[in-house]
Design a protein around this nucleic acid. Structure first.
Lengths: 203, 203
DNA sequence: TAAAATAGTATACCGTAGTATCTTAAAATG
DNA sequence: CATTTTAAGATACTACGGTATACTATTTTA
């Protein structure tokens, strides 16, 4: 504590913040591909090993910077009484991600992260406390309560489907708009979710 | 190293084959991550620029080698009279890929390819006549002929779904077995495809 | 057959991710 | 306050993907 003023050498959180801030600025200036670790180090007046001591690879540093300085996603779980509306609202909360970053940033980040982690972890990591699958699960629980589906039949593959579709949109298309969301919900998600009907519904 | 007496300089297909063969051996020995272009060049007694003149990046060379020396995929389009059986057969044809390669090879290849091309192109890739989406389309056409769905309602997003699910399995799981295929077909693909019903079916 | 175009050879080079090493400031411990 | 421990600084290094260049063998063409 008595050091803060005169200290020439930053440590811990101070240093970490400086690096994350530099990383955030840089990724916004040059995008993901041209983002280099050396440049971040230079801008933060830090040494490269400092970066690698905290983030094991480029994509992790960028992900951290986005989590800290990127758009905050509304984490509220919609409960409108309609599965369709709930899903649309949930997806719409994610639109801000597309609005903030171009495809290039998301795309590059995605392929690099894919190198080290499985798909279902990608979304959780990027938004830390905002686990998409948990939110999906909550929405489906409400639907189950209304007797529209049987949540016991919802497998992990099905739970992951929204995330996968989201990632696919990132990779494949420039943007995700309201119309795309409705298309995904109506043509894919609802048929899949509601296809897992309660046994009583079957005959 | 100057040529010993009668060493002719290889060109065209001869040279290409030597490189592909070396690449195939190498990727099987060391996997994708430790596969280096320099080592391929060395083994094929070729110069690096020769590789890059034909394949623009590492992932392309590896993909080419797999297409040439890897398992031949049955490209026949099933037509059993049942959409479910057709889809299961189609997916089962792809099992051989998982059997032949470990996840590491597919995983690394996938993330590198993702860097330069969109998801829906990954499977079609240089494999010329083996386009998954075309086969899906044919199977769906048969189903349409039987009046089970309306093919006009099948959007590109829906057509790409099988490929996306396949890629997801590559990334996320060790293997894809019969049970997985049935799960994907019954719980996801059939609900989605059959959800796009003909207007006449609506009661 | 001679010239021109094509494409392989050899090698040096660049940029970046990521690591190793050695020194030194600052914090923790006692 | 002295000692020990932690972690930053500085810098050099390795490995690899991919490119550039200069040279030369082979094929094409006229």
């Amino acid at each position: 504590m008595p050091n803060t003023k005169n200290s020439t050498r930053r440590r811990g959180k101070k240093l970490e913040d400086a690096v994350l801030s530099a990383a955030w600025n840089l990724v916004n200036e040059v995008g993901y591909k041209d983002f280099t670790m050396s440049e971040v180090a230079k801008r933060a007046n830090a040494a490269k090993p400092v970066l690698y001591r905290r983030w094991s690879e480029k994509s992790e540093l960028v992900a951290s910077a986005i989590i800290k300085y990127g758009p905050k996603i509304d984490v509220s779980i919609p409960d409108t009484g309609s599965l369709r509306e709930d899903l649309i609202k949930l997806f719409s909360q994610l639109l801000v991600i597309f609005d903030t970053f171009g495809t290039e940033k998301l795309h590059g980040l995605l392929s690099d992260r894919l190198k080290s982690i499985p798909v279902d972890k990608i979304l959780n990591a990027t938004s830390s406390e905002n686990k998409l699958t948990e939110m999906i699960m909550a929405v489906l629980k409400h639907s189950d309560d209304r007797g529209e589906l049987d949540i016991k039949n919802i497998t992990s593959r099905i739970i992951n489907l929204p995330g996968i579709l989201l990632i696919n949109e990132v990779v494949e298309h420039e943007a995700m708009d309201k119309k795309t969301i409705e298309d995904i919900v109506d043509r894919i998600l609802l048929p899949v979710f509601l296809g897992q009907k309660k046994a009583a519904d079957n005959n």
